[in-house]
Amino acid sequence: MTGTHAILYTTDAEADREFLRDVLGFPHVDAGGGWLIFQLPPAELGVHPAEGAPTSELYLMCDDLDATLAELAAKGVQPVGERVEARWGVRAWVALPSGTQLGLYEPRHPVARGL
């Protein structure tokens, strides 16, 4: 395996691509016709037991969630809903231009990204 390729399905792909490019500043390549493929930070995968139907979630990890939210607020991006604290970390969500929610996560457990 050489990496992870995540797909975000959205109702306004162009606007959400602009957000990832211009607001979050992710480097990217154009795969043709404006289909931007973004370089993400290193990834890790957690596998949790399902309570109900199996699903998947996408979070962008940060070292300091409050600082990240403040940086995004300075760019006009506000969190959606309440932040969620747990012993293993804290989560919050922001809305992309399409309304799709993107999770942000500050882990408080050992992380695998430095392996």
Rank of each mutant, 00 (worst) to 15 (best):
W88Y: 12
L24M: 07
A112P: 01
T4N: 15
L96C: 02
A73G: 04
W93G: 09
P54Y: 11
E44K: 05
G46R: 11
L96R: 02
Y9D: 14
A74C: 06
D66Y: 13
E51C: 04
V23Y: 00
G33D: 10
V111D: 09
A73H: 04
D63P: 10
G89L: 04
A13I: 03
Q39M: 11
R113T: 14
V80Y: 14
G81Y: 10
P27L: 06
L65T: 02
D16K: 07
P41R: 12
M61H: 05
A15P: 00
V47W: 06
G34M: 05
L72T: 05
D64S: 12
G25P: 04
G52K: 06
A73N: 04
R21I: 00
E57N: 13
Q101G: 13
D30S: 01
R87E: 15
A67E: 06
G52P: 01
F26M: 08
V23F: 00
A13Q: 07
F38C: 01
G76V: 02
A13R: 05
I37K: 06
A95K: 00
Y105E: 05
G76T: 01
D16R: 04
G89F: 03
F38T: 01
V77G: 08
L72H: 03
L20S: 00
P110E: 03
A112Q: 07
E85K: 07
D66F: 13
A43P: 05
A53V: 14
P54R: 13
P79A: 09
R17D: 04
Y9L: 13
G81T: 12
D22R: 03
T4W: 15
P97C: 09
S56C: 11
Y59H: 13
G99S: 06
Q101D: 13
D30Y: 00
A95H: 00
